[in-house]
Amino acid sequence: MQAIPITLAIDVLNLSKKYGDVVAVDNISFKVKQGSVFAFLGPNGAGKSTTIKMLTTLLVPTNGTVTLNGFDVAKKSNEVRKNFGIVFQDPSLDDDLTAYENMELHGVLYKVDNMKERIEQLLTFVELWDRKNSPVKTFSGGMKRRLEIARGLMHHPKILFLDEPTLGLDPQTRNHIWNYISKMNREDGTTIFFTTHYMEEAEKVADEIVIIDQGKIIAQGTSTELKAKTKTNSLEDAFIDLTGHDIRPEEAPKNARMRAWHGRR
């Protein structure tokens, strides 16, 4: 029996990932408290998605350990998978199935209670209920994105990973979705771990921010602390101050660029 109460949602220790010569994630450590909203920020290619893949059992780290709600990701991957939900940066829908079928498949995999009502509720929320029987391949980029989010919110995970969830969405929809996510955090105590390139989103909702650049953590704290440290007035200015003004070189390998392209469709 576990006597010590588990208080950390995520505990990352000395985590690294190398792709050949490229060090995508370079010995990072951080902790995320249960029930908090945690922003993981960084320029393109910083290693955010790679880190998320290692936290969610999709990628085996070159080095280091990850613990989710007390379960070691390397050793207890099945237990770990019961603890989180995720919205990926890249598309992960089945284009040949309809919106409803994609939701249903998720509902069955995650054993969602009252599945039919839940699907209707979420598809209505992202304004896709009247398109529920259309194949996903007939959707616009924003519609697909909304469906991905609706699907990710369907079950009630203890930890929710959101990798650039609002990518390509209009401001109204972004607002709408962040309100829902904040509500999940307040009412169900869901821990939120997210990445974004919209600094104002992070500034508004995050309790704790980590900034990663070229695989290394370069700053950590609340939005207020980061602004104070850099003597700036907005998180965006603080971010630019910390990570520099240069645009990141396009060093991504071919298949990573391919995927980015699919993301933009």
Binding site: T57, P91, S92, L93, D94, L105, H106, L109, K111, H262
Partner: peptide, 17 residues
């Protein structure tokens, strides 16, 4: 294909064996 177009991830993170 499922890997290329991303759907595979959806099944691989699901809480099923």
């Amino acid at each position: 294909w499922d890997r290329q177009f991303g759907f595979l991830k959806e099944t691989l993170v699901a809480p099923v064996s």
